[in-house]
Simulated scan of single mutants.
Amino acid sequence: MSPPAVPFRTGLTRGFAQGAFHDIAYVEWGERDSPHVIVCLHGLSRQGRDFDPLAQALAGMGYRVVCPDLVGRGRSGRLRDPEGYGLPQYAADMAMLVAHLGVDSLDWIGTSLGGLTGMVLAGAKGSPIRRFVINDIGPFLPWAPVRAIGARLREAPRLHESLETAEARLRTVHAPFGPLTDAQWRHLTEHSFVPEPAGGFRPHYDPGIGNAFRPGRVYSVSMWPVWDAITCPVLLLRGADSDLLLRETADEMTRRGPRATRIDIPGCGHAPALLDAHQIGIVTDWLGRPE
């Protein structure tokens, strides 16, 4: 990919779990003192660098854009006991991040798990979230695709001999992201795997994040009361072929709670990658330039 048009910074704050503190790492784009802040949060096995092109575009519009790595992913810390990986911990950590940013209000862009985390925060009393873009996730998750996602995660190789084999795996597992260029796949790969001293490349996440998907633990999830508590404006993005965000669930999301504005993105399943100009434009057009 081409060099960033807007410089970025790396940062750290701290979360707390299981009697210990852990790092919450993030990449930050735009002017540090801009009062117009957007947090972009990634999916289950992903990390904050997925949002580089979108963050660059938003920063160029005048936003301060913060793209964290959830605990257990990327440059963030790992939990001592993987049983702690779950939505309550992720929401608590992101609340700590919001406090660290020192702003009274912000916008939220969340893909998949990042969208679920955003739902929890946006539906909370006194939420600082002003506007919410939720990407291919909703308050009802059918068990079959959840089980399939968990199985792929738990069965993923712990080590790849090269970035080429790692990229081949990524292209297969994340084919529902839609048609991406070779440069886009390589960008995702370079930030999804880290070199091992003895050779090879391992995924940039703690394998323990898959514990929640062990056999007997996967079931349909319903979070409608959380959705109904959200009052801020919401843009709902759905991959037209998504099996995780069902069409009928997306329909219902436009009729209740915040009554989301919905856009289906053709050629994608779970979840649109928000890497190409068209998808980025959908988000930037809805958010508009900061006032």
Rank of each mutant, 00 (worst) to 15 (best):
P4L: 04
P4S: 11
V6C: 02
F8I: 00
T10C: 09
T10M: 06
D23T: 14
W29L: 12
G30N: 07
E31P: 14
V39F: 02
V39A: 09
C40A: 15
H42W: 09
H42K: 10
H42M: 08
R49Q: 14
D50V: 01
A57C: 02
L58C: 06
V65N: 08
C67K: 04
D69R: 03
G72A: 11
R75H: 10
S76K: 06
G77W: 01
L79T: 01
L79Q: 06
L79W: 06
D81V: 01
D81Y: 01
P82V: 12
P88R: 01
Q89D: 01
A91I: 06
A92S: 14
A95I: 02
L97D: 01
V98H: 03
A99L: 06
A99Y: 00
A99K: 14
S105R: 15
I109L: 13
I109F: 11
T111R: 08
T111G: 09
G115H: 10
M119A: 06
V120N: 01
V120R: 07
V120Q: 11
L121T: 00
A122S: 07
A122G: 03
G123H: 05
K125Q: 11
I129A: 13
I129M: 10
I129H: 10
R130T: 09
F132K: 11
I134H: 08
I134E: 12
D136E: 08
I137F: 09
G138R: 09
F140E: 15
W143N: 04
A144H: 11
A144Q: 15
P145A: 11
P145F: 09
V146S: 11
V146G: 05
A148T: 06
I149Q: 12
G150Q: 08
G150K: 07
L153G: 08
L153R: 09
R154L: 08
E155F: 00
A156N: 12
L159S: 03
E161S: 14
L163V: 12
T165K: 13
R169L: 12
V173M: 02
H174R: 11
P176G: 11
G178I: 12
G178Y: 00
P179Q: 13
T181Q: 10
T181F: 03
D182R: 14
D182S: 12
Q184I: 07
L188M: 14
E190W: 08
H191P: 00
F193D: 01
P195D: 05
E196T: 07
E196I: 00
A198S: 14
G199H: 11
F201C: 04
H204K: 14
Y205I: 04
P207R: 14
I209M: 08
I209D: 12
I209G: 12
G210E: 07
R214N: 05
P215F: 00
P215H: 01
G216D: 03
S220A: 15
W227N: 07
T231H: 13
P233T: 02
V234C: 15
L237P: 04
A240M: 04
D241K: 14
L244E: 05
L244S: 14
R247P: 04
R247A: 15
E248P: 00
T249E: 11
M253D: 13
I265M: 08
G267F: 04
C268F: 00
H270G: 06
A271P: 00
P272R: 05
D276N: 14
A277T: 13
A277Q: 15
A277K: 13
A277G: 03
I280C: 05
T284D: 11
D285Q: 15
D285P: 08
E291I: 08
